[in-house]
Design a protein around this nucleic acid. Structure first.
Lengths: 261, 261
DNA sequence: CGTGACCTTGAAAGCCTTCAACTCGGGTGG
DNA sequence: CCACCCGAGTTGAAGGCTTTCAAGGTCACG
């Protein structure tokens, strides 16, 4: 957490310029309120559906920070005193078993909210995959704000329920899908995420390593690699390089992901 | 849903008498408000932390129903127009893949809340494992009530976050634990649930079939059965019959579940 | 007492993992 | 400038954990 620093206000426009997708979303949706330029990732960030008063109050308790690749936003077991809204970059969330086995719970991108917990401590670790920017909200002050603006709870509940549904979908993937189905489901999930954020559908960007993908899908890096190769050989996907995938036949992939026999 | 009928008011005391655990919890916590006698499963039901006004309002929109074994409370894909609080019995939640493979998302017991969704439709099926009673809250009227009593949202958010954390723990189980670790984790989860509801720790009651357990743990019924046999042979558990388990060495099981590999 | 659902156990097969070798690209220091 | 190293990724071969296939057992129920 000590590797985070606040960007100067002057940097904002430069940052926004680097993030074409965010600007696209902003333009598409017009001038809605947002606590800061960074948070201006409409529809997805938790300010969506809030009114200007609420957003303004939120902006007052918020601080901005950037996180370097491999640095943690927070770690499992630490006191959960901050919730964060990612404004650019990519983050992985994971838990560890006693002997070091790792399960990645999910990946989060611009507009996503992380660090909300029921208990006192974070129940997972959040780590940046690349240069990442976040808006940080102190939990104490956030809770005070929630007392004043009850609608914030409603919004957080919506987000929490959506996250729960996505996590339950992931249970199906881990418990009942084959390696191929897992990898295909993963690619489609990333593609859908890009569309939701207003980014181009293709190429599908993979900011995470094969090891991260493996720990997300409950596989080994070798199986992930082999499955990519297999899909490529079958003409179902094309790899520009190891981090950019293009999809040939979307319908075919959708069928595989759904487990059509 | 048509297999549910409302019990007559006169049945309530008889029902309560059958549910020793609920009475125990009630006595322990004293006279807190609850929408109905059935909902009187303190600490766990969603009325906990609400004040009498809120609970009274909730009781007015609530109807009670009983569900027979194998009958569905609701099905995946149906319009999600009711949320429910289980007051007795046991329920399994599951999703299906196109070819029929099933993943059980979790089991729910007295005091648990089911059917809350972000979208319009249920994203999973809920089916009774045994005779089950529920309090049903029409979504529309519930949402109106949430507008009036904002604290309900706060309570629902708490429940949602707890459920999310539990589901994330299940991701670790499905993605990274061995068959033995899965079964042991499952038994401890059930044991903890019984304690939380004020029931005796032992024997651990298994109201679900081996097939249900398998589909919850991402295994086959044969592997589940073999793993039970293995644990029994090692003296780590004892099976009174197929549905009642006793634990010899709790610490040893905790270590196995945590993956002290 | 037959029937069926559920559970257990054995043996063979298979999917994924483990172990191992090799490639590729980037960073570094001589 | 380039040899060297290291992390990340790919591919092959062997092994193992779990599944699949198969058979038998138990118990509730009509």
């Amino acid at each position: 957490m000590n590797d985070t620093v606040d960007p100067s206000p002057g940097e904002f426009s430069a940052i926004m310029a680097q993030h074409e997708p965010l600007r696209i979303v902003s333009q598409r949706l017009g001038a809605l309120p947002a606590p800061c330029a960074h948070c201006d990732v409409r529809e997805r960030n938790f300010c969506a559906a809030l009114d200007p008063h609420e957003v303004q109050a939120l902006s007052k308790i918020m601080t901005e920070a950037k996180v370097a690749p491999h640095a943690a936003l927070f770690r499992e077991g630490e006191p959960a005193d901050t919730v964060m809204n990612i404004t650019s970059g990519a983050v992985k969330l994971y838990k560890l078993l006693a002997d070091g086995r790792r399960q990645i719970l999910g990946f989060r991108f611009a507009g996503d909210f992380v660090g909300l917990t029921a208990g006192q401590d974070y129940t997972y670790t959040a780590e940046a995959l690349e240069d990442t920017r976040v808006c940080r909200f102190p939990r104490k002050r956030m809770e005070a704000l929630r007392e004043t603006f009850k609608r914030i709870d409603k919004r957080l509940l919506e987000l929490s329920m959506e996250e729960l549904a996505a996590t339950q979908e992931q249970l199906v993937l881990l418990g009942r899908k084959t390696a191929e189905e897992k990898v295909v489901s993963f690619l489609l999930l990333l593609a859908n995420g890009q569309v939701r954020r207003g980014e181009p559908v293709e190429p599908i960007r993979l900011p995470m390593t094969r090891s991260d993908i493996a720990d997300y899908l409950g596989l080994t890096i070798e199986t992930v690699s082999r499955t990519f190769s297999l899909l490529k050989r079958r003409g179902l996907i094309a790899l520009d390089d190891t981090t950019h995938v293009r999809v040939g036949n979307r319908e075919a992939l959708e069928e595989i992901a759904a487990g059509q026999g």
